[in-house]
Simulated scan of single mutants.
Amino acid sequence: MSSQKEFKQQVRKLYHKLIAAFGIITISVFLFIYIALHPSAFKNSPEETSIIAVPEVDGKIENGIHLATGFVDGEGLTEVIQNCTNCHSAKLVTQNRMTEEGWVATIRWMQETQNLWDLGDQEELIVNYLATNYAPQKKGRREVLTDIEWYTLPAN
């Protein structure tokens, strides 16, 4: 009787292994068919995995603005994109306005505290680009007030 019990256990184990094998084969076939029908879903090209890549606007410039970043077009644009947007958004750059000295001081601060690499020969080009396109803006006087209804304050 024990041999019949052992035989049934072995048959059950074989049955479970066959079911598992059938499941693996079925999944493999479906995966193979999916890959065959959708090969682009499994490509791993640099253009598709880049952090700053925006396929429909990357590299395009309209009205003097680089569409992917919002940076002003000019000499040093590529270097600024390559060195600044690796760590933070372009918006962080465009919302700031500094002199050449201010940009250099900010770069030094990032190198000392934020692990910014040495910019080497590109630093002068980057600083010139930033100081030219993102310099402080002069603020003039406010506009003259017009259509104001003046009134007298009562005396205490």
Rank of each mutant, 00 (worst) to 15 (best):
2 S>R: 07
5 K>H: 11
6 E>W: 09
6 E>R: 13
9 Q>R: 13
16 H>N: 11
19 I>K: 04
21 A>M: 10
23 G>M: 07
29 V>T: 08
29 V>L: 12
29 V>P: 00
32 F>D: 00
33 I>L: 11
34 Y>F: 14
36 A>F: 14
37 L>A: 14
37 L>Y: 09
39 P>D: 06
40 S>A: 15
42 F>P: 03
45 S>A: 12
47 E>P: 01
49 T>N: 12
49 T>G: 09
52 I>W: 10
52 I>R: 13
55 P>N: 06
55 P>I: 10
59 G>K: 06
62 E>G: 05
64 G>S: 09
67 L>Y: 06
68 A>F: 01
74 G>V: 03
75 E>T: 15
78 T>P: 00
78 T>E: 09
79 E>V: 05
79 E>H: 02
83 N>Y: 07
84 C>W: 09
90 A>M: 01
99 T>H: 04
101 E>Y: 02
102 G>E: 05
109 W>S: 07
109 W>D: 09
109 W>I: 03
112 E>L: 14
114 Q>E: 15
122 Q>N: 14
127 V>M: 07
128 N>Q: 15
133 N>K: 10
134 Y>K: 05
135 A>Q: 10
136 P>D: 05
138 K>Y: 12
143 E>W: 02
145 L>V: 15
146 T>P: 00
148 I>G: 01
154 P>H: 01
156 N>V: 11
156 N>D: 11
